[in-house]
Design a protein around this nucleic acid. Structure first.
Length: 481
DNA sequence: AAAAAAC
């Protein structure tokens, strides 16, 4: 059923550009979406991550721009005729580069505008005139208000990662942008995930749309092997070391839920001797682009990042994705692990689950409609003991009423700040050695037998997962929410 | 519970 690009009714310059990139056959989303977009209809397109959605809308879009000249403007004016909106700067950059490649043999001009960069060069490009404008919402509004961008001749709008663009954080900006566009236009929405509510909302922005769903929406790529391992706090870093080593993995994305946590974990892994860089929204745009580039070039092995990197980033051959934190939104799980296993390659996704993550894991289970089994990671005998390398862990003095430390076991006088710092899968008591300059960063847990189990959305997930971590017996009153 | 997107 594979269909070569050569069978498409595309202009010769576009076909040549595609051939230059070494592409022969279309992916399913491309085979289905391109003919529809060529008709000029509104489209809502869902397909798994890493299956070439960008080409699916940009090729037919360029074709239509070439075929249907804008009669109301002189050719020298180059009014913006197509607008592509994305939720992150890196993604805007990436999509713009791809569109420029597809358009390189045509006379169509394109450019990209996003925040964190000097306005002036962007303004200059806009004043020269572009048919295709790729942008993030905030900066685009700046340019609109500064009258650098005139959008009253836009014929096509693309919302990539559409469900994110329509979510509450982006919606006000998006609505303002759309208010500047002609009502008579084609609107294209693409994403790997669409919740029912977003679908309904999206429908109100589309006219008589064609829905294209390649496989079920919210589906993860079948080439990605997924594991959920129980691990708490410092155990998570050990787990990363263990998986990297036992699987022989060279490069990975590591997702963290907060910017601060991201910076901290990157520092810790760096101290552990791994070539690491961090990518999050508190970094300057220059640093962000450098971090991504270093990872792409292979100068660093681990990219510790927030959800700024969860969507769309297309980096070849990333062998693994770690979720150091379980994502707050189940949809983001699908996008995060979509950074690996792209274009049919195989990939590994490891999610580290702590005892408080039951709800979130249950959400993922519900979204994927698949049972999730929390596994106990098998550790090598020689895995690092005690604190790996982080000399900055906070400690507190033992409580006044704490029992006196037993002779010869001085460290038992200390308690980790966090009560969940014990690692239930820590199968051997910590043995202090001469090389240890610091105490271990968790209490030595009694030998725990790892329990296997799975969470089911309709069973009280909190309790089930808690059992994995040998939590104290649940209290009588049920959690009310 | 957070992140992202403008200065």
């Amino acid at each position: 059923m594979t269909q070569p690009y050569s069978t498409l009714a595309l202009a010769e310059p576009l076909k040549r550009a595609v051939a230059d990139m070494g592409y022969e056959n279309m992916t399913p989303i491309q085979a289905q979406a391109i003919p529809v977009v060529l008709t000029g209809k509104d489209v809502m397109g869902a397909a798994q991550t890493g299956t070439g959605k960008t080409a699916a809308f940009s090729l037919p879009l360029l074709e239509r721009l070439l075929k249907h000249e804008n009669s109301s403007a002189s050719p020298a004016r180059h009014p913006v005729r197509a607008l592509v909106l994305l939720p992150t700067r890196e993604l805007a950059d990436q999509v713009a580069q791809q569109i420029a490649l597809y358009a390189k043999y045509t006379k169509l001009r394109s450019t990209v505008v996003f925040g964190g960069m000097d306005m002036k060069p962007q303004t200059l490009e806009l004043k020269k005139g572009v048919e295709v404008l790729v942008a993030t919402p905030g900066r685009l509004l700046d340019h609109i208000e500064a009258k650098n961008a005139v959008l009253n001749q836009v014929e096509y709008v693309v919302l990539d990662e559409a469900d994110r663009m329509l979510d509450i954080g982006f919606l006000p900006d998006l609505q303002r942008i759309l208010s500047y566009l002609p009502k008579q236009r084609t609107t294209l929405l693409f994403s790997a995930t669409f919740s029912p509510e977003i679908k309904r909302l999206a429908g109100s922005y589309l006219q008589d749309p064609v829905t294209i769903e390649v496989a079920r929406p919210n589906e993860t790529a079948s080439t990605v092997e997924q594991h959920f391992y129980g691990a708490n706090d410092d155990g998570k870093r050990h787990a990363i070391h263990q998986v990297l080593k036992s699987r022989g993995i060279k490069q990975a994305f590591i997702f963290v839920n907060s910017k601060l946590g991201c910076a901290r974990l990157a520092r810790s892994l760096e101290r552990d001797g791994l070539k690491t860089t961090a990518l999050h929204g508190d970094k300057s745009q220059d640093e962000r682009l450098k971090a991504l580039d270093a990872f792409k070039q292979g100068a660093v092995d681990l990219l510790v990042c927030t959800d700024v990197a969860a969507r769309g980033l297309d980096i070849k051959d990333v062998p693994a994705v770690f979720n150091y934190d379980v994502p707050f939104n189940a949809e983001d799980y699908v996008h995060r692990i979509g950074r690996t296993g792209r274009a049919g390659a195989s990939g590994l996704a490891v999610t580290l689950v702590s005892s408080s993550d039951a709800r979130l894991v249950a959400d993922i289970e519900k979204l994927l409609k698949k049972k999730i089994e929390i596994e106990a990671l098998e550790y090598d005998e020689d895995r690092p003991r005690g604190r790996i390398n982080d000399g900055r862990r906070a400690w507190r003095e033992p409580a006044e009423d704490a029992p006196a430390p037993r002779a010869g076991r001085e460290r038992s006088a200390y308690r980790p700040v966090s009560a969940v710092a014990r690692d239930p899968f820590f199968d051997k008591p910590y043995e202090a050695s001469a090389s240890d300059s610091v105490a271990p960063s968790w209490e030595v847990a009694p030998k725990a037998t790892p329990v296997r189990g799975s969470i089911s959305a309709n069973i009280k997930p909190k309790r089930k997962l808690a059992a994995l971590f040998k939590a104290p017996a649940p209290t009588a009153e049920p959690a009310t929410q």
